[in-house]
Nucleic acid binder design. Structure first.
Lengths: 189, 189
DNA sequence: ATGCTCTATGCAACTCGTTGCATAGAGCAA
DNA sequence: TTGCTCTATGCAACGAGTTGCATAGAGCAT
């Protein structure tokens, strides 16, 4: 149940409404934790009932009013408790890997287009991460200083960048393998 | 619902019982798709009802009888259909990344032990993958030849190896960052 | 004898996550 | 004026995944 805690972290970085959170989960937080607006609204409601967050009705002009959530003292304690709990190393769920092994029982070459689509998506993500890094951390216009929060956000982003680079290299390896199998499945030493 | 297809792939590679599948999902398949025995038994039952797998009662000595499942023609077709469908690039869910960003609102240094635990686990996994690669693919005793199935299993394993290496390097980066923040959070330019 | 682990299968209850749909006012374009 | 998109919140139903428990015979150790 880490969505609760991901929301707490995001609200500590900046208070906001359910809608705003769902937008954030499509971008920065979403790079390492996804959630739909449905999940977010439901969890916010539960956390409000548990007293982990405070709500403030914010009237707006030209758009519907919103409920701005912020983390309460109890919420901070819940987060601290979770931070001190050990957690299991992630187990990956890589659908594409299942498809690649499954391709042995179908036509391996038919997977090439699919892998190329994935490669393009990861290439785009990498470009997006690198642009964000320039903008927020390493570029000339980026704020200077050594705020711990910023440094930690940066190291997480570096993880995303490393992940995308590794994935691109692997997908190239996969493509080369699929092409080799498609080329000449028979005449071979 | 890729668990269905992961099971089909595993059964095509080698028929087996629900119990055997759950063991496999702790090892080779489990490196990129996890499942408990509960899930596996339930999905096998559904796939049997849908005619995707055939069952054979196998009496055994010294241990309970088992049901050996194998993929039917309808199951192969279902797998082929899925292989030709496009799928979304994975969205990662990295709990540790949430914790790292959350550490800004607690004590960053308190996370060091946790990150070290993860590092040790990934290091062990890498060693396990490398041993498996030696045994099955690159070592002197490994079977020669260019079976497409083996080549595809190998490229998936190379992906696992690349992932673990990347993760280890990133965790070292994370540790260095956490130690830097713990060292001297005050006296700094 | 007693308890432990391993093989082997399964039910029941629960939480987590997804999908479809609904509401509602503002702004904008054809 | 009709339809589209954006902000903003939410219900209902379903499917995926987890956890706890139960059964049951074989082998092994104390």
């Amino acid at each position: 149940m880490a969505l609760d805690h991901a929301i707490l972290v995001s609200l500590l970085e900046k208070p906001g409404s359910g809608y705003e959170l769902s937008r954030r989960f499509e971008r920065s937080i979403g790079h390492f934790w996804t959630a739909t607006h449905q999940q977010i609204y439901r969890v916010l409601k539960r956390m409000e009932a548990d007293g982990w967050v405070d709500v403030r009705e914010v009237p707006q002009e030209g758009r519907p009013d919103k409920k701005e959530y912020s983390v309460s003292a109890a919420g901070r304690e819940a987060l601290a408790r979770w931070l001190h709990e050990p957690s299991e190393p992630e187990s990956i769920r890589h659908e594409l890997a299942v498809k690649i092994r499954g391709a042995a029982f179908d036509d391996p070459a038919a997977l090439i287009a699919e892998v190329e689509r994935h490669r393009a998506a990861h290439s785009e993500r990498l470009a997006h991460y690198l642009a964000g890094e320039q903008r927020d951390f390493t570029g000339p216009g980026a704020p200077a200083g050594t705020d711990p929060g910023r440094e930690l956000q940066h190291v997480v982003l570096r993880g995303g960048i490393a992940y995308e680079r590794m994935t691109l290299a692997w997908l190239d390896d996969v493509l080369a393998t699929l092409r080799r199998l498609g080329d000449d499945p028979d005449r071979r030493p």
